[in-house]
C-alpha cells in the first residue's frame, strides 16, 4: 500500500529529525547538501550549455563531420585550414581588425575620460550616454543604419566627403577600403565600456597625488605618465583584454554590411565559421575554426596579461 509506506517513511524521518537534529545540523553532509542545493541550478546549465559544448567542439574538430557523415580524421581539419588561402585571409583580416579597433578605441576612451573627468556631472553624464548608447542599440540596428550611410550613391558618407571636394568612395565594394569602413563601425560600439571604466578609474585616484606632483613641479604630461597611467593599469588590462576578445569575434557587421566580400577582403574567422557550419554544413571543419579562434584569443590575452600586469604597487 503506497499510502501506508509513505506514512511509515514520514514517521521514520520525523524520528531521525527529532533525535539527532543537532548532529545532523553540524554534519558535513548537511552543509554539503545546502551548498549543492544552491549551486545545483547553475551547475546543471553551466555543465550542459557551457562546459559540454566547449569540450565537444574540441572533440568534433577531429572529425569530418556534417549532415549524414562523421569520420575520424585526426588533425585533418587543422591541416586543411592552415593550407586554405581563404582561412588564412580571414585570420589576416581578423588581426587587422583587432589591430585597428583595439588601440584606437582604448586610446580614445582614455583621452576622452581624461578630459571629461574635469567636467561637471551633467557633462560627464552626457558623454557616458553618447558613448554607451551605440552598445545598447545592438549591432544589427547600427549596421543597418551604416549600410545606408555607406551607400555610394545615396549615402550621407559620400555626400559629406563631396562637401570637401573628395571623390565618392565605394565603401563596401572597393576591397582596399572595406576593412576601414568595417573598423569605423566597430569602433563606435567599442568605446562606451572602456570610457565608463576609465572614468570610474580616474575618479578613484586621490587628488593628493596630483597635488604632491604639482608641488614638485611636474608637468601635466609627466603627471599623466607617472601617476595616471600606472594607476590605471588594472583598468587598461581589463579593457584591452575584453575589447580584443570582442573584436576577434566580429560577426554582425560583416554579415550585414559586406557578407565577407568583396573577394574575401572582410571575411573574419567568425564569419567564415558561421558560413562553414550553417551554410555549407561542414560542422567538423567549423569546430576546428572555433578551436583555432579560441587559441588565438588565449595567446593574445596571455601576452596582454604579461604586458599590462600591474607590477607597480602603491
Amino acid at each position: 500500500m503506497p499510502g501506508g509506506a509513505f506514512s511509515a517513511a514520514a514517521d521514520f524521518l520525523r524520528q531521525v529529525h527529532e533525535e539527532s537534529w543537532d548532529k545532523i545540523m553540524a554534519s558535513r553532509a548537511y552543509r554539503e547538501f545546502w551548498g549543492f542545493f544552491f549551486i545545483l541550478p547553475f551547475l546543471l546549465v553551466f555543465a550542459a550549455f557551457e562546459i559540454y559544448p566547449f569540450l565537444d567542439a574540441i572533440y568534433l574538430s577531429l572529425f569530418d563531420y556534417g549532415i549524414g557523415r562523421k569520420e575520424w580524421i585526426g588533425f585533418g581539419n587543422y591541416s586543411h585550414l592552415l593550407g586554405d588561402d581563404v582561412f588564412l585571409k580571414s585570420i589576416r583580416n581578423t588581426f587587422l581588425l583587432v589591430l585597428g579597433v583595439v588601440p584606437l578605441s582604448v586610446g580614445f576612451s582614455l583621452a576622452a575620460a581624461s578630459i571629461v573627468i574635469h567636467k561637471s556631472a551633467a557633462v560627464a553624464s552626457f558623454f557616458r550616454a553618447s558613448f554607451y548608447l551605440p552598445i545598447v542599440t545592438s549591432q544589427v540596428i547600427l549596421s543597418i543604419a551604416w549600410l545606408w550611410i555607406y551607400n555610394p550613391m545615396t549615402g550621407v558618407a559620400n555626400y559629406g566627403l563631396s562637401l570637401f571636394g573628395i571623390e565618392p568612395v565605394m565603401w563596401l565594394s572597393d576591397s582596399s577600403v572595406t576593412l576601414v569602413a568595417v573598423i569605423i563601425v566597430v569602433i563606435t560600439w567599442c568605446v562606451g565600456q572602456p570610457f565608463i571604466l576609465y572614468l570610474a578609474g580616474l575618479g578613484g585616484i586621490p587628488s593628493s597625488y596630483y597635488e604632491a606632483a604639482s608641488i614638485d613641479g611636474a608637468s601635466p604630461w609627466r603627471k599623466f605618465w607617472s601617476i595616471t597611467l600606472p594607476l590605471l593599469k588594472p583598468t587598461t588590462l581589463y579593457v584591452v583584454v575584453t575589447t580584443t576578445i570582442g573584436a576577434f569575434q566580429t560577426f554582425v557587421v560583416i554579415q550585414l554590411l559586406t557578407g565577407g566580400g568583396p573577394n574575401y577582403s572582410t571575411t573574419t574567422i567568425m564569419y567564415m565559421l558561421y558560413e562553414t557550419a550553417f551554410k555549407y554544413g561542414n560542422l567538423g571543419l567549423a569546430s576546428a575554426m572555433g578551436v583555432l579562434l579560441a587559441v588565438l584569443i588565449s595567446i593574445f590575452s596571455l601576452i596582454q596579461f604579461k604586458f599590462f600586469r600591474s607590477d607597480v604597487e602603491y
Partner: peptide, 26 residues
C-alpha cells in the same frame, strides 16, 4: 567549489562561439 569557480573564470575568457556547433547539435 574552488574548481567550479575556477572553471567559471576560465570560461569567461573563452569565446562562446567555440561551442556554437555542439550547442546547435544539442
Amino acid at each position: 567549489q574552488a574548481v567550479l569557480f575556477g572553471l567559471v573564470i576560465v570560461t569567461m575568457m573563452i569565446p562562446r562561439q567555440l561551442g556554437l556547433v555542439p550547442l546547435f547539435t544539442l
